[in-house]
């Protein structure tokens, strides 16, 4: 670790060139190579974001200019962002996204946790086959089932509703699989002690398993929330009216048959991504701890 990354007394308190140099000075040739590779990797990761933010400040003509510049030649940022935030009901889109993501997550947890408990800890005929089915379902992408689900939604008249956007994701086999693996590490003797003490199976799940599974639930919640916040494919299929659109879907409004305003599309993309990025930056420590923390010791 370089001292630059550390909090504490070694950090230069004022701008201090020699100290800065001491901090970043290469320690060995291999460190130079490693740092260069890491910088390259970081650039590959960050560049699309820079490109997005940069393009959101440009008029469409400049987005397609042969020479890419980070700083726009013609600054159209104000207009782009104004029309994204105020020419359309942007708060409505955010609210729709929130409803969809929270709705999906809640139902996913409510269905996946008891299912995972049953698969991990209860003995019943066919449990192995059921679990095999769950694992097999992991390999089926949404695109395969989307047409039957779409037809079903049309038949029950739920097209263009929030429910239609959430419905295909209510049961997450990934969540069942993840929780099942996590619950398996929970000591059997505690569950048996609970049965003797008079807990019902649901109370075992709610009072004992759930508190111990907080890290797994937090990690899954982040995955699920981000995935459905960013989902464009399904909302695009089932929603037409503007007041049902999610934030991500609202970007598509600037794409029309003969003309696409890329400046505004990118401004919209930036605005849509922003809540997730800000939330992650604020709660970064918790996210990382949630994902890396494992198990409980009794």
């Amino acid at each position: 670790m370089t001292p630059l990354l550390q909090d504490g007394p070694s950090r230069p308190s004022r701008f201090d060139l020699p100290a800065l140099w001491r901090a970043v000075r290469p320690r060995s040739p291999s460190a130079v190579i490693v740092t260069a590779l890491l910088l390259l990797g970081a650039w590959i990761m960050v560049f699309p974001f820079i490109w997005m933010v940069s393009s959101s400040l440009k008029p469409t003509s400049e987005v397609f200019a042969p020479v890419f510049t980070i700083i726009p030649k013609t600054f159209a940022g104000l207009g782009n962002y104004y029309s994204v935030l105020f020419d359309q009901p942007y708060p409505r889109f955010l609210l729709n996204s929130l409803i969809v993501c929270v709705g999906i997550l809640v139902v996913q947890l409510v269905t996946a946790i008891p299912a995972a408990y049953a698969l991990a800890k209860l003995k019943f005929r066919g449990s192995t086959i059921l679990f095999g089915t769950v694992v097999a379902s992991l390999t089926i992408p949404i695109n395969v089932t989307s047409i039957p689900i779409y037809i079903g939604i049309v038949k029950v008249g739920l097209l263009d509703t929030h429910v239609a956007m959430m419905f295909p994701f209510f049961i997450s086999v990934f969540a069942i699989f993840l929780f099942r693996q996590f619950f398996r590490t929970f000591p059997d003797s505690i569950i048996q002690a609970a049965r003797i003490d008079g807990f019902s199976e649901m109370e075992i799940v709610l009072r004992l398993i759930l508190p111990s599974a907080v890290p797994a639930i937090a990690a899954f919640s982040v995955f699920s929330f981000v995935a459905h916040w960013n989902d464009l494919y399904w909302p695009l299929i089932v929603v037409q009216s503007q007041d049902k659109m999610t934030a991500t879907l609202s970007m598509m409004q600037y794409q029309q048959e003969f003309y696409t305003d890329y400046g505004k599309t990118f401004a919209s993309a930036t605005v849509v991504t922003a809540p997730m990025v800000i939330a992650f930056l604020l709660a970064r420590r918790h996210f990382i701890r949630g994902i890396t923390m494992t198990g409980v010791k009794g």
């Binding site: 609970a194 003797i196 409980v296 009794g298």
Partner: peptide, 27 residues
């Protein structure tokens, strides 16, 4: 098990990990 009016002590104690001793005993 709960209707047999038995109590059991386990090898690994099987205490409820996130409850206090009083809650464990009161359960």
């Amino acid at each position: 098990p709960k209707h047999r009016n038995i109590a059991m002590v386990f090898q690994d104690y099987a205490l409820y990990p996130h409850m206090s001793v009083a809650e464990n005993m009161g359960m």
